[in-house]
Nucleic acid binder design. Sequence first.
DNA 1: TACTTGTACAAGTTACTTCTTGTACAATAG
DNA 2: CTATTGTACAAGAAGTAACTTGTACAAGTA
Lengths: 119, 119
Amino acid sequence: MTPEPEELAVSVGPDAVLRALADPHRRQILRLVQHAELPAGKIAARFDLTQQAVSQHLAVLKRAGLLAERREGTRRLYSLRSESLEPLRTLLDEFWPDALLRLKLSVEQAHPRTERRPP
Amino acid sequence: MTPEPEELAVSVGPDAVLRALADPHRRQILRLVQHAELPAGKIAARFDLTQQAVSQHLAVLKRAGLLAERREGTRRLYSLRSESLEPLRTLLDEFWPDALLRLKLSVEQAHPRTERRPP
DNA sequence: TACTTGTACAAGTTACTTCTTGTACAATAG
DNA sequence: CTATTGTACAAGAAGTAACTTGTACAAGTA
């Protein structure tokens, strides 16, 4: 009865993203995989935590949509999915003072970076 | 021995801010006080929670630097301190793909919105 | 086949979060 | 002074998070 397309569930909402980011270890993981895909082991090696603990952090980040996972043989390669930061940006836009918000919107309208949702 | 200037401690770091924002009730509180100061009681009245629970949320938000508190008689008036979203914006900038980051920076340089910290 | 490597899953512990109920206390009104 | 109102503080319950150690298992290698 779970009709979820599994890998295609893209947006997780702001809660999961914010909670995932609220941990320093996890932010560090994101920094590591921001520019290059990295296997779980190499990531774990950078921390004073057990491999399993890091694996659990990876799972949290993945559930939040912040990590892409690619399997290659026995290894799992992780990389940042920056699209999933969108809810964070939306939140920030919502609370950022109006003056700057208006400026920002005008910039984005002048240089649209992604498809518009048609109303 | 705590030489803290108390009210002047402005920046709390990304952890507290992110954790504070990771709760829907607290985000709702921020929306309520975003444009107008509100007393704790009026805020509490908007939720299906006890006054005390909301008071605790207010405390979390205040510790994160996200709320200003002004006392007026017996009431406490809260309002959003949007400066404290700065760590969030920094984080977002750090992880946002380079293309958009460069655009954003160029805009901010063209229209500086706040004083520069002199080095 | 059996061994090794890379990784996740499972269960348990400890600490933290979020709520509740009960209470204290400061400011004002009578 | 006494009562009322607006609010925070305190303690405890229940859930969740961040670890640990132990184990399973899939993919290669001898």
